[in-house]
Design a protein around this nucleic acid. Structure first.
Lengths: 227, 227
DNA sequence: CGATTGCTTGACCCCCATCAATCCTCGTGG
DNA sequence: CCACGAGGATTGATGGGGGTCAAGCAATCG
């Protein structure tokens, strides 16, 4: 089991604020976990009782709607924390997290997180800034959902994937299914598929099997923002 | 000018965690402000450099979409804080706040808030919990926007208004226009109006001028959740 | 008392959800 | 090694939801 004080991933989140002593203490109580593709890290309503830190891989974070569809709220990757919201509110989770590929996470028990929040104001401030950023992103998504067409939202999502997950193999290195993509956008799977092939016809993207290649970022941006 | 240590409104937010000394210090640096109906408390892109605490009245909090529509993200009332997100992120505001009726707010300068965050862990925890709650609410709104029909969202909104702003005069004591309601739901004004009169025909609500009376909460709930 | 702002209703039509059928692609077991 | 089954991808057809334009009405205000 690795040691937190030697783990570079903490530079990507609030744990960078911890002192060496605090990191050593963290190493003693944290646990590591491996999750295979498709497995559930935690589900809605579950008491997480701690905080997950993603070391590797990608999870989709979703919430079930009344109509039975899983709306994907977020994609989390290396360095991201998940579970802080429920931890701070002292509630069970309002979200579900599922591995899109093989994922490694560390789990830090709630008591240890709270202890650090009480002792280290810099750590607390880091966590607050993370929450504040999440809130801003959420506000942006609300506006997009409310005001943009499905086509625009697909363009936004493709640009987001391109920005965050692009490899030489395409922008879908995390193996989202068409249904996943539809559940990010908030539309029917068939609609997403139809728009993808329309985008391909217009040479905005290329499709090779399930993989997606962005060909024309500027035009996608124009599409995403207006008519 | 009132004194914070005698102000009961702090019981409604994180300021309840401040000590008497801290409250007295707060009184010395805070300022009060009155905003008339329709006036702008702050706009997108503005540097707020502090935190507002609503003493009275209601503001609509919105964000401009690329298509030029103001999507209403939140309605804030007595006891609510606004500006914390930008303060913590050290950014200019991503939101706009406009008074729906005459509003009184207190303004606390950034430096004073930061000082209290550094010194009083309980206050910090209170602020974090507020952010965490806002985030959960935002997640719920995203799911509703993505997965519910306009009709369902109107039902949700009417129930929300009933829950939070109902008086004997109806549920629209804060004088939202039809356009405002449409901008909460994320639809065209005409669509919102049409659905309101449909709801009236079905005896779910009653309309007297601009005022709205909820007649059948259970049916509205059923409508809001499914078919 | 005009004039601006908000409310309401009608007409039109496109976007998109839904249902259905087919094709493709794997992983599994015979 | 191949057959087959299951889940995913794709395309077609169809109908309704809801966006948009336009016109008329009501209310509020300087």
């Amino acid at each position: 089991m690795g040691k937190c004080e030697q783990c570079g991933i903490r530079q990507l989140n609030a744990f960078k604020e911890l002192t060496k002593d605090e990191l050593i203490r963290l190493s003693l109580c944290k646990s590591s976990k491996e999750i295979k593709k498709g497995e559930v890290l935690f589900d809605e309503g579950e008491h997480i009782n701690g905080l997950y830190c993603v070391r590797n891989g990608v999870c989709k974070v979703s919430k079930m709607s009344d109509n039975g569809k899983d709306q994907i709220i977020n994609l989390i990757k290396k360095g991201d924390l998940i579970g802080e919201r429920s931890l701070i509110s002292n509630e069970s989770s309002n979200l579900k997290a599922v591995a899109l590929n093989d994922v490694e996470v560390c789990f830090i028990p709630k008591e240890e997180v709270i202890k650090n929040l009480q002792r280290n104001p810099n750590f607390t401030m880091g966590m607050m800034q993370k929450l504040a950023l999440s809130l801003k992103n959420a506000d942006n998504i609300i506006v997009d959902m409310a005001q943009k067409t499905v086509k625009q939202r697909l363009a936004v999502t493709l640009l987001y994937l391109h920005e965050n997950f692009k490899t030489e193999e395409g922008i879908n290195s995390i193996h989202l299914t068409r249904e996943d993509i539809a559940n990010i956008i908030g539309t029917a799977t068939e609609s997403a598929i139809r728009l993808l092939s329309e985008f391909k016809k217009n040479n905005l993207i290329d499709l090779k099997g399930k993989e997606i290649f962005v060909l024309n970022i500027p035009k996608l941006k124009i599409l995403a923002e207006g008519l």
